[in-house]
Write a protein that binds this DNA or RNA. Structure first.
Lengths: 341, 341
DNA sequence: GTGAAAGCGCTAACAG
DNA sequence: CTGTTAGCGCTTTCAC
C-alpha cells in the first residue's frame, strides 16, 4: 500500500509537503498541491492512521464498555454515542462484558494497550470497579450507573425521581398497598430506584411493607420469579406493583396473568424505562420514559470535550429527567376490594 | 508512560530482550525474565499496541458495519461477533450507518485508514455498495444481507425458506387467501422473503394476488401503513397475513386491531425473525426463528479465519436454517367466512 | 541467549 | 513555501 514516501517520489516533492496537503496543515502552492493530489489519486493512497497515532499520541478512538447489549436499554445509548463520535471523527470500540468481571478487566487492558483516547462505561456501580478503572491512565466518563459518592464526569437519569413519579401516579389513582420489584441491589440504578420508591411512598403517606419489596435482576425472568415468590409468601396481595424496569414489569405481568390475576383490573403495574415495545406489550405498559439516546449522546459529548480540553477540563454531572407515560397497565378505576388468597 | 526502552534500562537488558519476554517470542533466561518482569511491574508498563501494529502491519481490530442498531434484529448479532472477537484477542469497532449512504462511505474510509484487519458488513444489498467495498483493500465477510449473485464469504439465514415455512403453516391451517407485507424491496433479505412467499404459495397450490402484496420498510410504522393501505384498496380482505419481519407484524396487528379486526379470529398473522418480545406482544406472535446470535458468531469466525489464513483462505457461505415458532397469532380454527367491507 | 540497529509511516521542528 | 531530519514505540533480523 502506498505511503507518503511513494507519493512524494511520484509527485517530486518532499514527504513533508505531502503531509501538509493531506492534513491541510500548512499552505502549499496550488501547483504542488495539484501534483500531490494527482499522485494520491493514481496510487490510491490512504493515510495510515496507525502511524499518525503513534506520532501524535492520540488515536481518535474511544472505547465503550457496557454490560449487556441484549438489554434493550442500551442500543439507543450506543446509537447516541456513535452519532456524536462519527461527527467528531472518532471511532468507537464496543465492549460487551456480558456481566463478566474478568472480561471487563481484560477489556480495560486492551483499551489501555490500544491507547484509546477515552472510555465511556455504562457498567460501573462499585467502588471496586471504579478503582480498577482509575488504575489505568484513561480519560473516562460514566454513564447510567455510578458508584456511591462518585461525583465527577457522569451522565445518567434521575432514577430516584423516576420511581417517585411512578408512586405519585399510583397514589393519585388511589392505590395504597404498593409492591416494589427491583433489580440487582449491587447496581447503582437499582438502589436509586428503590430509594425513590421509599421516598415516594413516604411523601404520599403510604405505608411501606418490607414483605412487598423484592430484588432480583433486570430481566423478565427475574420479574416473573419475584411475583411467584410474592404469591407464595404474602397473605394480602398488593393493589399495585412498581417494577424497577420494563423488562421486570413484563415478567411481572406474565406471572400475574398466568396465575389468573388481571392487569390492571386486579393489580396495577407500572414499568420503568419505556422499552421500545412497552406500548405493545400484552397489556400496554404505563411506564416512565428515560431519554436513553440523549444519555449516550451527552455522554460521548462530555468525553470528547474532556479529551480535547485535557487538564483544563472542568468535570460535571448531567442528570436527565424522566417522565410519566400513561398507557393501560394501571388505569383501572381503583376498587376498594382487597385480594386475599 | 513507560516504554520498552525504559524497561530495558531499568532491568539492564536490551530492548530486544524486553520484547522477547513481553511477547514470549523467544527464550530468555529465567534470571533476565525476572528482572524484566519486575521492571514492568514497577513502571506499570503497558505495551503500546499502536506501535506494534505499525510494525506488524496488523491491528487485531475489525470493523462491524450495520444499518441500524435500534432494530432488535442486530444486538444479538453484535453480541455473537463480540464474543468471538474477544476470545481471539480482537476488538470490534462498531459503525452504525443509520441507513445513510454517505455515512457508510465515510465509515469505509475510516476503517481503511485505521487499518482494520477486516470488516463484517450487515448492510450490503446492492452491487453498487459491494463495488464500493471492493475498492478498498479489505478483508471482509457479509452477513445477513448480500447483493444478487454474490457468492463469496457470507453468513445469513435462509430467508426464502423462512417465509415458505410460514406459508406452509398457514396452508396446513387451512388459510388460502394470504397477503404478504414486506420490507424495502432494495434489501436482499426482503427480496428473498418475497420469493419465499411466492414459492410457498405455488407449492401449496394457493393463488397469489398481486393486490395483496405490499412492500415498505422493516419497521412497525411501515407494517401499520401497509395494512391501512390494504384496507382502503382491497375488496376482499385476506384470511391471513404473512409479515416479512416481526416488527412489520407488530404494525400489522396494531392497525388491524385499531380497525376492529381481531387477530387471529378475523385475520391470522405470522411474523418473521422471532424478535425478543414477540412472545409477549399484544397477541403473542407466531413467527419464524432466526438464529441471529449464531449468525454473528459464525460471521466473526469466518472473518478471523480469513484473516489468519490470508491468501490460502477458501471462501464459503453459511446459510442458517430458520424454524417455526407457533404462538397465538394464527392458531384460530379457520372459518370459511369471507370478510368484505 | 542476548544485544545492536534498521525501519514500520507519519508529524513537526527546523533550516533554508 | 518547501525540504531534511529526528523520532513516536515496537519487532525482527543478524551478529556476537
Amino acid at each position: 500500500m502506498a505511503t507518503m514516501k511513494d507519493i512524494s517520489k511520484k509527485a517530486n516533492v518532499s514527504i513533508a509537503t505531502v503531509s501538509a496537503v493531506v492534513n491541510q496543515s500548512a499552505f502549499v502552492s496550488p501547483e504542488l498541491t495539484d501534483r500531490v493530489n494527482k499522485a494520491i489519486e493514481e496510487l490510491n493512497y490512504r493515510p495510515n492512521a496507525i502511524a499518525r497515532s503513534l506520532k501524535k499520541k492520540s488515536t481518535n478512538t474511544v472505547g465503550v464498555i457496557l454490560s449487556d447489549i441484549l438489554n434493550p436499554y442500551y442500543p439507543a445509548i450506543v446509537k447516541g454515542m456513535d452519532d456524536v463520535a462519527i461527527n467528531n471523527n472518532f471511532s468507537v470500540i464496543l465492549c460487551n462484558t456480558s456481566n463478566d468481571k474478568s472480561r471487563f478487566l481484560s477489556y480495560l487492558d486492551v483499551m489501555e494497550e490500544k491507547r484509546v483516547d477515552g472510555l465511556i462505561l455504562a457498567n460501573i456501580s462499585t467502588q471496586e470497579d471504579l478503582l480498577e478503572l482509575e488504575k489505568r491512565r484513561l480519560n473516562f466518563v460514566l454513564v447510567n450507573r455510578r458508584p456511591p459518592g462518585y461525583n465527577t464526569s457522569y451522565v445518567g437519569v434521575n432514577n430516584e425521581l423516576a420511581i417517585e413519579i411512578a408512586v405519585d401516579h399510583f397514589s393519585s389513582l388511589g392505590y395504597k398497598r404498593i409492591a416494589f420489584i427491583g433489580g440487582n441491589s449491587e447496581i447503582s440504578t437499582s438502589k436509586e430506584r428503590l430509594n425513590g420508591f421509599v421516598k415516594g411512598m413516604k411523601k404520599n403517606g403510604l405505608q411501606i411493607s418490607n414483605s412487598l419489596i423484592f430484588q432480583g435482576e433486570y430481566t423478565q425472568d427475574s420479574g416473573y420469579a419475584s411475583v411467584i415468590k410474592m404469591l407464595k409468601e404474602v397473605q394480602v396481595l398488593p393493589e399495585a406493583i412498581c417494577a424497577s424496569s420494563d423488562l421486570i414489569a413484563f415478567g411481572v405481568i406474565k406471572a400475574l396473568r398466568e396465575q389468573g390475576i388481571q392487569v390492571p383490573e386486579d393489580i396495577a403495574v407500572m414499568g420503568n424505562d419505556n422499552n421500545h415495545f412497552s406500548g405493545e406489550f400484552l397489556v400496554p405498559l404505563s411506564t416512565i420514559n428515560h431519554p436513553t439516546y440523549e444519555m449516550g449522546k451527552l455522554g460521548m459529548e462530555m468525553l470528547l470535550q474532556g479529551i480535547s480540553e485535557g487538564a483544563n477540563h472542568y468535570p460535571k454531572q448531567i442528570i436527565l429527567t424522566p417522565s410519566l407515560v400513561v398507557r393501560e397497565s394501571c388505569n383501572f378505576a381503583h376498587r376498594e376490594k382487597v385480594i386475599t388468597k
